[in-house]
Design a protein around this nucleic acid. Structure first.
Lengths: 206, 206
DNA sequence: AGGCTAAGTGAGTGATTGCTCACTCCAAGA
DNA sequence: TCTTGGAGTGAGCAATCACTCACTTAGCCT
């Protein structure tokens, strides 16, 4: 075995996170062994544990990195109207997850974990931030008159998020990540059809 | 160890399924060992494998039994109007799952499995039946004039199901199964607010 | 050049897992 | 009463896993 060239710890940690997310593309996170991660990194099994005290720590770092990445992209969006901003956030969320099924598998697995863990709390915190971001925009849209003022913004945002997560689960179940962004877009359009008598934004064909 | 009394195979198989679903209430299905199941049944580890050729077979039987039970209850409903029937189906679905978190964990775990398996296909088939049931009712509601005729029934049904699944995921993430049925009811009401200019069916406070 | 240190190695360890098997038990039918 | 076969047992196997450690390597600072 040729010896792997020494690499700064920070870099190796990032490599490990990437290796994990890559493997999670086609494998349930629970079934990914630390040995498999080391192999994908081109490093011995023991080397992995020089950089992470435990498997769980690596999992936590992966979720932290992933949610941070999502936050960064979401924050970079700035559309003129609140409702357009909502649509943009949802589209960005859907697109990024559709491109990284491994990330989806990681987040979903953590959210469903029965016992609490650092990774699970990080995932939940991200979800909450996302929901709050949407709720704030809903309030702005109502103030602007572009959204039914009788809707409860918090509840409406929660419902948008729930639908998005449901669509993601469907994508997971049917290996249909290709259509995720499109489905998400349609669902958002239907949710945000505005004003009384507004025509539903769904188009029957296609 | 006192010897377990001999029991007909069919009965023992049912016991095993129940033991698995019980354990899944507080544990991720992937982490439930066949030994733990046998122990909960009050039977030796080896005895379990007299009734199931493999762990996977038991998992498949559990999903088959669970979806069958869900189907039975859903078929027993018969409300006068299509839209009321939709609401009843969704409420029944939500209530039954809220009462059996173990069942939820099993179904979700199977749906997310990367490779296909008998259990996964059974779970997917149930979802599809449920969605179709709803879509058929949507068509009836449109014919009756109680639902916007411009909506695509298939897509609308898919969205209802996705939202329900998202709410279930939230319940899983927040240990909030107590509120699931209520949240589901509100989401259905919002989806089915009828006609142009209709007031959203949500009530802002509590 | 020489030495210090961060990083890599791979053999090992103990625990757990799914599954097998030779054997025991017991009840129902001949 | 004897036989037969379905059901239960528990020791044990082979594989896998997360994690450890004594040792090696190589790059940087002086």
């Amino acid at each position: 075995m040729p010896r792997a060239s020494p690499t700064p710890a920070a870099e190796r940690r990032a490599h490990a996170v990437q290796a994990l997310l890559d493997l999670a593309r086609h494998t349930a996170p629970d079934q990914i062994s630390t040995a498999a991660i080391a192999e994908r990194m081109g490093v011995s099994h023991g080397a992995l544990f020089r950089h992470f005290p435990s498997r769980e720590a690596l999992w936590a770092e992966a979720v932290t990195w992933a949610t941070g990445e999502l936050d960064t992209r979401l924050e970079s969006l700035a559309l003129p109207s609140p409702l357009e901003q909502v649509a943009a956030l949802m589209a960005c969320h859907a697109t990024m997850l559709a491109e990284n099924p491994g990330l989806v598998r990681m987040l979903f697995a953590e959210l469903q974990r029965p016992a609490t863990s650092l990774a699970r709390e990080t995932g939940k915190a991200f979800m909450q931030r996302f929901r709050r971001r949407l709720a704030t925009l809903m309030v702005a849209a109502q103030a602007e008159g572009s959204l039914d003022p009788q809707l409860d913004p918090e509840e409406f945002a929660a419902l948008l998020v729930a639908t998005q997560q449901g669509l993601i689960l469907q994508a997971l179940a049917h290996d249909g990540f290709a259509d995720l962004a499109e489905h998400s877009k349609r669902s958002v359009a239907l949710f945000l059809r505005r004003g009384p008598g507004g025509v539903p934004a769904t188009t029957p064909g296609e």
